[in-house]
Design a protein around this nucleic acid. Structure first.
Length: 793
RNA sequence: GGAUCCUUAGCUCAGCUGGUAGAGCGCUUCGCUUACAUCGAAGAUGUCAUAGGUUCGAGUCCUAUAGGAUCCACCA
């Protein structure tokens, strides 16, 4: 057994153990083990060469606490790490950083830049995760743009296509004019904006003047129709009549439509291609209407807009209002608060543009998605509702094509002559149709030999939704791959339930009629000290590297235990300080105990004559191990920490250590009483260390290596066995009550000393503890533990 | 409009299946005691948002109300 130095150098020792774990392969997955498997579908963070913040630290550590616990419980832990580096976030980052215009650079050049950036990003991330002590197996990593992932994503596409779950269609779809790509419902955010409700006058064929209200007057040239509510008495006479639009002089027929709100605006609404989702829905009810491609992909007005062609939507709006005013067709303008959909990545107003896109059928499978959701174990349970809410509210099939560069290509060509869809062969995946030709030489339908590659890339969630498969297939052995899927645990933030979680569940159902994982652990997000959400955009956070540098990874991890599962949590310097104090406390306790553990035979089979204080603390330890286990099993790391802390700090150090000092300092070091104290001390300390190990892996490893490694057969505490709650430690309720009274008595002695300003170390002459205590049995103990010459009843 | 959640000590939050209010920080007083002053001991502080109800008994269950948060839908 080694001596414990006076000081624990956090930075130096943490660095040492990081290297040790790496060198010894402590966290390596064992492909040949028969132990039960605990596999994690680790969230691959978006790599954008930017810094991770304390919010990420929080959610990743929280999942990791449980993973470490499971590893000690004997599970063969599969804990890979991915980097999500394909898709829009990276493209936008690169565009900004290098001031690139997507239309003026070739796809391959652009992709090269993106790859370079993501490589830098992945390194930054790996460094920080390592710094934090995240126990992933670094030999099991993937990046969502690498060959492994492209292959699986493309396979997924082919499989779904063959199952008739994917279709290609020309229809209005959500469109971002900044990113110039189609997007999906999940990419939307809502923002409340100040807008104007414009009241426009039009003439009916009867000569009657009517007024309709719109927030999108610039779409006038794309007017498809105009409606009133069939119940609307005021406007009954207009139904079926032709209406002549101002400026464009276009004629549309007034229709009755139940969706029209009689009380909003003037009670008359016009529909354009496309003002919003409601216009598309209206079109479905009035399919005879003529549609227009007024807005171009770049957000400018097309030729259909006549004199407004070439203007942006915002410019056209202004001009048209001006022109309406000039011809007297403008009745009034009301300011209104208006919620608009924006693209979450760039915050641009979303348009609906008619284009040809790839879709995955979702709308007719809602019931099945809900059933699959029921099969998962949700921690905490309430987030299941959020999933169900999203599924029930689905309105669109999933648009999976993006008119972007940096992503997984579709494994598809089209026949140049007849447009027939030609799929890649599975054995050739991954393919880039821009750089290769289909295996067949001629179109099976028309015999043409010329093919056009699909140049779109897939939505990034096409890949992310495959992470349980991507992870499992990192194992080399096919048998093992099967065991790893479905994964045991999916830890993730609540914000991406509607995307990552939903899409993964959908895919798993489509591909394998299975669930992708059994348990879902939902974490909240990090808030700054003032309670605002931490985000890269706001920059309202301290760099985790700096916190680790100052207080240690253990202290930062300790902070992360503070949030109840699924709740948001503020960053708090105070809590990190508490973590640092815990490190110091652990250190000092073991430093105190170390001399007494020398030459101790910790053989569990040796008969020990435990004294009441020993039996009391062992019973407490038993209870603590049990409750901590229960908490970890339900992913309640926060509870687990409170439970172990209460034992360690309030019971063990504040009381038990004080209770046994007189025995430890006794002259006869080999008396049964002294040996019992030492044996108990040993049991408690080792258990404490192991319980803290998942939360504070560095300090616990340090102490384990110094004091306990020689007794345990594992080279690291993190692969040692979780402490056993020994049934023989349980005590009777009678004893429990008896000893509680003894503790009460000791507390009252402390109180007495405190009131009389006497140092606790000073022995007082006498104290009356009342008549509830068996002094014959406990008198001497109270005298020695509380330092009183004589206790009386 | 639909869904979920929150309102407990000055602050940040725990309070599991209902049984006499808890922690940490902060505050007051005291104490260097052969681990720790980066500490220890003792102490003060709450009509648990409001109003009803169920119950022998309610932060804990039910119903309304008020305030706050988030998600979804609507908003022409």
């Amino acid at each position: 057994m080694n001596e414990i130095p006076k000081q624990y150098n956090i930075q130096e020792r943490e660095e040492f153990w990081r290297e040790f774990w790496e060198k010894e392969g402590i966290y390596k997955f064992d492909e040949n083990s028969d132990q039960p498997i605990f596999s994690v579908d680790t969230p691959p963070p978006y790599v954008s060469a930017d810094h991770l913040h304390t919010g990420h630290i929080m959610s990743y550590s929280q999942a990791e606490f449980v993973v470490r616990y499971k590893r000690m419980k004997g599970f063969n832990v599969f804990y890979p790490m991915g980097f999500d580096d394909n898709g829009l976030p990276t493209e936008r980052f690169v565009e900004k950083k290098y001031k690139i215009d997507k239309s003026k650079i070739s796809r391959s050049e652009f992709v090269k830049k993106c790859l370079e950036e993501t490589k830098i990003g992945a390194e930054t991330y790996r460094k920080l995760w390592t710094l934090l002590g995240i126990s992933v197996d670094w030999s099991k990593t993937y990046s969502t743009i690498n060959e492994h992932c492209r292959k699986i994503s493309q396979w997924s596409f082919l499989d779904l296509y063959k199952k008739n779950l994917i279709y290609r269609a020309q229809k209005p779809a959500l469109w971002c004019t900044t990113c110039q790509t189609a997007i999906s419902q999940a990419d939307l955010e809502v923002e409340e904006k100040d807008s104007q409700l414009v009241y426009i006058k039009a003439k009916a064929e009867t000569g009657e003047e009517l007024v309709f209200a719109t927030t999108r007057p610039e779409l006038l040239p794309a007017c498809m129709g105009i409606s009133v509510n069939p119940q609307d008495k005021k406007h009954q006479n207009l139904i079926g009549k032709k209406v002549i639009m101002p400026l464009t002089k276009a004629e549309v027929v007034m229709t009755a439509d139940e969706a029209t709100d009689m009380d909003f605006g003037s009670g008359i609404v016009y529909y354009c291609s496309y003002g919003g989702g409601e216009c598309i829905e209206w079109l479905a009810r009035h399919p005879e209407s003529k549609t227009f491609k007024l807005i171009l992909p770049d957000g400018k007005i097309s030729e259909i807009g006549g004199k407004y062609a070439g203007l942006t939507v915002a410019e056209a709006r202004k001009e048209i209002v001006e022109d309406l005013k000039k011809i007297g067709a403008l009745e009034k303008i009301e300011p209104i608060k208006h919620s608009v959909f924006i693209h979450e990545r760039c915050r641009t107003d979303v348009e609906y543009i008619e284009t040809e896109q790839w879709f995955i059928k979702l709308m007719d499978k809602k019931k099945e998605f809900l059933q699959q959701g029921q099969k998962l174990r949700w921690f905490p349970e309430r987030w299941k509702k959020s999933y169900e809410n999203w599924v029930e509210g689905l309105k669109w099939d999933w648009c999976i094509s993006r008119q972007r560069y940096y992503g997984v290509p579709f494994p598809v060509w089209y026949c140049k002559k007849c447009g027939e869809i030609i799929l890649a062969e599975e054995k050739n995946l991954p393919v880039d149709p821009l750089e290769s030709q289909p295996e067949i030489k001629a179109c099976p339908k028309c015999g043409s030999m010329e093919f056009v590659p699909e140049s779109d890339v897939m939505d990034t969630w096409m890949t992310s939704s495959m992470t349980p498969v991507i992870g499992a297939r990192l194992a080399e052995n096919p048998q093992m791959q099967k065991k790893l899927y479905p994964a045991t645990l999916r830890p993730q933030a609540f914000e991406i339930i509607r995307t990552w979680l939903f899409y993964t569940v959908a895919k798993s159902y489509f591909h394998d009629n299975s669930i992708p994982f059994h348990d879902v652990m939902i974490s909240g997000h990090g808030l700054d000290m003032a309670g605002k959400k931490i985000s890269k955009r706001l920059g309202n956070y301290t760099l985790p590297e700096k916190i680790i540098e100052e207080s240690g990874a253990d202290a930062l991890r300790y902070w992360a235990t503070g949030a109840t599962l699924g709740e948001n949590m503020r960053y708090s310097e105070e809590e990190v300080k508490m973590g640092k104090k815990t490190i110091t406390k652990l250190w000092n306790v073991f430093r105190f105990a170390q001399p007494h553990l020398k030459n101790l035979n910790p053989d569990k089979n040796i008969k020990v004559n435990y004294e009441p204080a020993d039996r009391w603390i062992l019973n407490e330890l038993y209870e603590t191990i049990k409750t901590v286990e229960k908490s970890f099993e339900t992913y309640e790391y926060s509870k687990a920490k409170n439970q172990m802390e209460s034992f360690f700090w309030n019971k063990f150090t504040d009381n038990y250590l004080e209770f046994i000092k007189y025995r430890l300092y006794a002259e006869d070091k080999n008396s049964p009483a002294v040996l019992a104290a030492k044996a108990t001390l040993f049991q408690c300390l080792l258990a404490i260390l192991k319980m803290y190990a998942p939360i504070m892996p560095f300090i616990t490893e340090e102490i384990y290596q110094l004091l306990f490694k020689e007794y345990e057969n594992q080279k690291s505490i993190h692969v040692s066995e979780w402490p056993e709650a020994n049934e023989s430690w349980k005590v009777s309720p009678e004893f429990s009550a008896e000893f509680s009274a003894v503790i009460e008595a000791i507390i009252s002695i402390r109180k007495h000393k405190s009131e009389k300003n006497i140092s606790l170390g000073k022995e007082i002459d006498a104290f009356n503890v009342g008549n509830k205590i068996n002094l014959e049995k406990y008198g001497e103990f109270i005298q020695r533990a509380a330092r009183v010459k004589e206790v009386t009843a």
